[in-house]
Amino acid sequence: MKKFSNKYIFLYAAILVAVAAVTLTVVSVSLKPRQLRNQEIERKQMLLRAIGIEASAAEAEEQYGLNITEDTLWTDNDGVRQALPYYIFREGVVLPFRGTGLWGPIWGYIAVDEDLTVKGAVFDHKGETPGLGGEIAADWFAHQFVGKSLLEDGVLSPIVLKKHANPNSPHEVDAISGGTMTSDGVTQMLADGVESYRSLLEAFSNVSESEFSDDVDVEEYE
């Protein structure tokens, strides 16, 4: 067997790694715009699903433009101004939620009308256990939220996930068996989200529909 000096080995390793690094950097940078576009389309598809529109990747951009208007809520958080995005659709607003599950980030969108009744919801996750916590991304789970309410006697009240949830309660949905940590994460996320958007939700649920639609360009809904 050929004998290699230490100097050669170090040099060899360094050059190899440098070549690999340069290759990967070039590829990563050149593919970045496409990947970001894919993520953007996925986000738009999710938002559309929350308001009950199934759009393929190709239609998502167009449907999004037709049905959803983006807006920002400015809140004062201990003197720090915070920008919170939200989305306006024909019947109401869609709120984005972000939280932490068992293994990583979870997120979702909930669409509510002016009574703060849930019109649709969708959730997704980065790496919850498939079949257990990962079920939050499934349709059956999201579907449970439809018809629930964020309002109780005029006071904001977030939806909670519970074992043996009362199907008649407007604030309870069934938690996922085997996915307790993820379910708790969702409950926490919903509570935090409703709290952050408190001013928006309160203002929104009190204005009449006609006042509300003044803010929005009606033509966009055609």
């Binding site: 690999a20 990967l24 590829v27 990563s28 593919l31 990947q35 993520q39 996925e42 990747a57």
Partner: peptide
């Protein structure tokens, strides 16, 4: 690893779902 990351990046760009 280099090849796998390349494949992964290409899939993310062209076959996202």
């Amino acid at each position: 690893s280099m090849l796998v990351v390349l494949v992964d990046q290409v899939l993310k760009a062209y076959l996202y779902d």
